[in-house]
Design a protein around this nucleic acid. Structure first.
Lengths: 145, 145
DNA sequence: CTTTAATCAGACAAAAAAATCTGTTTATAG
DNA sequence: CTATAAACAGATTTTTTTGTCTGATTAAAG
């Protein structure tokens, strides 16, 4: 099987969307996130720690501590989270794995894939957390099932 | 890092494109493919064996043996190779990893990603080996570098 | 018929990704 | 102050992916 984002990145995106749905400044524990999203607690905790280092998330230690967004949701783009976790390699390496793929020695899919990849990149760059809030709330409402 | 296709699938696509570039019916050894494409020989050999089981490739044992396409290049689509190696999971599982993602309980990216994914699927379905032959030949000509 | 060069089969090894565990530090609440 | 609940740090384990090795089988060529 193949996948666009690593599991780490999927979980990271889910967690950040969850944070944004709770409202700005709201502090949420890794435990709550893990339970609601059905993610291993220690794992999501690690991911949020790394996003804290990246400056996308704030953390507060001690009792009643947890995580919150470090910026306004309108200032956090999906690509920022992807870049922090998976990096942007998928947007500049050859889809067929040719190490030597370049505009002057393109692989057979260079153009076709290039344009799809750009569309994907643009989508992730345009989508900010605030724009997704309503959809995120809807989704979260149905997670109990 | 993330990736669209697994290494196995990348190598499989490269190898099949290589076969198609050599002309229909032409038999090529795993050794030659491995050397030209800079892929571990045993690995590409395994991949071609599996594609043989899938009916996309023919194999011939013994001296002067090797692999060849099992169908006309115009009848082999890229999606066939992807399906045989990586499966089609990436085209029907949630991009954010929500197990419960569906049209009635969509994830926040459901529509936007869905349309990009369809475009990708369509591209892989439309592209057959014969259509890529010229580009493949060009690429192969530059692999020595 | 014997040598050679190939696929094939299946175990094995190494590396990467995903997940878990153990314990420490920190801050709040009682 | 003390108990508690959280992040934090880092080692460890498990699983998956990637890659390697050994030998058996097969077929062509001399």
């Amino acid at each position: 099987m193949t996948v666009i984002f690593s599991k780490k990145c999927e979980y990271g995106l889910q967690a950040v969307l969850y944070l944004s749905a709770k409202g700005i400044g709201e502090i949420v524990s890794a435990d709550e996130i893990a339970k609601k999203l059905n993610i291993p607690k220690e794992f999501v905790s690690k991911i949020l720690q790394s996003l804290t280092e990246s400056g996308l998330v704030n953390s507060k230690k001690g009792k009643a501590g947890g995580f919150s967004l470090a910026k306004e949701p309108s200032k956090i783009r999906l690509i920022d989270i992807v870049a922090a976790i998976d990096g942007l390699g998928m947007f500049n390496t050859c889809v067929l794995g040719f190490p030597s793929c370049s505009p002057d020695h393109p692989c057979p899919l260079h153009e076709k894939w290039g344009s799809l990849r750009s569309s994907t990149y643009n989508m992730l760059t345009e989508q900010t957390l605030d724009e997704l809030k309503e959809k995120t709330l809807n989704k979260i409402a149905h997670l109990e099932a």
